[in-house]
């Protein structure tokens, strides 16, 4: 099989090296080699990804709580029924998750696209500007929380300095007020998330053929028309892929919300994964947490499929 691949890769008409070494190589590289090479990765993924996924589905059908072992046993769909009918927090956390993902991904995409278009221009200080605007990409969710907690804290945070110049009042914290907490956490996550889009889109921008722009210019197309008719279609696949990945990641984002607001105030910023984590950590109701996890899986998978189908991903060149 290895030999077949080698032959297929050689351009037609080019004589290969003499047959002898090739035959010897096929002897030296048995058909087992590719399997041996992927074995470590495959075993790790089977043990620590596939098995946990299956066990989540299994436990979702069980009552399983290490602190209440007398209740453990088969539950059927009781955990799911509980989520959909008895647990008001399920619907509110799911609603907030969707709101969080929609707002974050939309704003990150728009700002990231704008930023990529700007730093793709030629100007003095471009390399340094790129390094600086991309730098929050490397910062963790917890460090982002740290920084924005310093900015939002009620005594020495930004509100104090705003109050000094007559805006707002002293001692307010945007994180503990239900009307300001959402924009406050959205801003913090934007700070970290925009560079991701900017880097991916900038990478894709570099492969747009310059000829297209020149041709468009000869035809008298304005820069705005060039953007909508050349740049945007070229970026389509990159945008679809990055928004999808980002949406999944933002849905699963626990670090930032857990440390910045802890899901509060009054459960206002609790996403579904945050609720699952707190059920698992605080009440050890692993069965119910697993059921919620299964629901989250199905939602993610379903939304991803619909999104890829609707956006006709990769449809142009296949």
């Amino acid at each position: 099989m290895a030999q077949a691949a080698a032959v297929a890769k050689r351009p037609p008409g080019v004589p290969g090296p003499s047959r002898v070494p090739r035959r010897r190589r096929t002897g030296a590289t048995p058909r087992r080699l590719p399997y041996l090479l992927i074995a470590p990765a495959a075993l790790l993924m089977l043990g620590f990804i596939a098995y946990p996924v299956l066990s989540v589905f299994y436990y979702s059908l069980q009552h399983y709580n290490p602190t209440k072992p007398w209740r453990n046993g088969f539950a059927g769909f009781e955990n799911f029924v509980k989520a959909f009918t008895e647990d008001p927090q399920f619907w509110s956390t799911l609603g907030f998750s969707l709101q969080w993902v929609a707002v974050e991904v939309t704003l990150q995409l728009l700002l990231g696209l704008g930023l990529a278009l700007i730093v793709n221009q030629t100007f003095v200080g471009r390399a340094l500007s790129r390094a600086m605007v991309f730098s929050p990409w490397a910062v963790s969710g917890v460090l982002t929380s740290t920084i924005w907690l310093l900015i939002y804290n009620s005594q020495t945070g930004i509100t104090r300095y705003l109050a000094d110049v007559g805006i707002g009042s002293y001692g307010t914290s945007w994180l503990s007020d239900t009307s300001t907490v959402f924009p406050a956490v959205v801003t913090a996550e934007l700070w970290r998330g925009v560079p991701f889009f900017a880097i991916l889109i900038l990478a894709d921008l570099q492969s747009v053929s310059k000829d297209l722009y020149e041709a468009a210019e000869v035809d008298g197309a304005s820069r705005i028309r060039q953007f909508f008719h050349i740049t945007l279609p070229h970026l389509k696949d990159a945008i679809i892929l990055s928004t999808l990945l980002r949406a999944v990641w933002e849905f699963n984002n626990v670090d930032l919300l857990y440390t910045l607001t802890g899901g509060g105030p009054a459960g206002e910023t609790t996403t579904l994964p945050l609720r699952i984590a707190s059920i698992a950590v605080d009440s050890h109701d692993f069965g119910y947490a697993s059921a919620l996890t299964s629901i989250a899986f199905v939602i993610l998978l379903f939304c991803s499929m619909v999104y890829l189908r609707l956006s006709k991903f990769g449809g142009d060149d296949k």
Binding site: P52, V53, V56, I276, A280
Partner: peptide
Amino acid sequence: IPGALMLVP
């Protein structure tokens, strides 16, 4: 597959 949701298993 969300790492966050795999914590329990």
